[in-house]
Write a protein that binds this DNA or RNA. Structure first.
Lengths: 154, 154
DNA sequence: TATTGTTATACTCTATAACTATA
DNA sequence: TATAGTTATAGAGTATAACAATA
């Protein structure tokens, strides 16, 4: 004899989500939310969110890179980069130098604190990555990276 | 002889992003952004963004589902659901009915326009999915879904 | 004219705390 | 006391338009 009206406090097991399970978009979003959660936990010590971490990483690997190049790389409007760069600068992690050969542009460079923080951040990001993908074997991890790369092209 | 100071108008080819390429978090985020772009284009006709589409889908598959159940399912605070539900209600896509057996809860149900819109939305979402993953074979698609499922744990 | 970087603005998404009414 | 839903609010993320300085 089934209960006629189960209390709505059902945590979610009986919910039919089959219509979403086949959508790669849904699966990708859910996976990204999980990864983001791990990232947040591991990066709280260095106080960097995903986008600022990406910026710091790219500036570290490409000294003198400009805002315009970062925007092209990350597909974001330059207006949104202004505040992010300003915050990294206010934390003394990066500095802006006049670009040789183009008076309009400003080259971005790591400062010593930025270099040091980036090392710690990189390790934390890798730990977050490993923890979030702990259920995957090394082969599966490589597969996943390759498949995701086919979607975002590179 | 290399140009000593290439103009900063470099679109992005020469930028070293190798430090990001190995991170699953980065790859997942980039893939999600691509999927989101396709989704946006295909869903403009039905005017549904990712979360409202997910809500409509879950309400369609689970008549009488409550906000609390949706929140548990989607890992979002109930306060953020209020406005979303209100918008769907204002568009006459869903209705809220008193929950049998719990006077606090409200069951969510599709209305006729919602049922009709959901059909179109579902087809559009599948088209967006297929277009975004056009570079993947059917086998790769299944692999990707399985691997992402291992991260977000179903 | 076109481009770099900037300001201003707006809308969405996300997160927290405090409240109400029911249980 | 605990839960369902609500309000208010604040912070990110994302998008467009308009502008100054330089090319």
């Amino acid at each position: 004899m089934k209960r006629p009206s189960p209390a709505p406090s059902n945590p979610g097991q009986d919910i039919d989500s089959s219509a979403l399970q086949g959508l790669v978009g849904y699966a990708t979003r859910r996976a990204w939310l999980v990864m983001q959660e791990h990232f947040k936990q591991h990066m709280s010590a260095v106080d960097l969110r995903p986008v600022p971490f990406t910026l710091l990483t790219l500036i570290g690997a490409n000294p003198g890179i400009t805002s315009t190049q970062l925007c092209a790389m990350l597909d974001m409007p330059s207006s949104n980069l202004v505040g992010l760069v300003k915050q990294l600068q206010d934390r003394d992690l990066i500095e802006r130098q006049p670009h040789p050969g183009d008076g309009r542009a400003l080259g971005l460079h790591l400062r010593a604190p930025g270099r040091s923080l980036l090392r710690k951040a990189r390790e934390a990001a890798e730990r977050a990555d490993r923890q979030a993908t702990a259920a995957l074997s090394d082969a599966e991890l490589a597969q996943l990276l390759a498949l995701l790369g086919k979607i975002h092209g590179r």
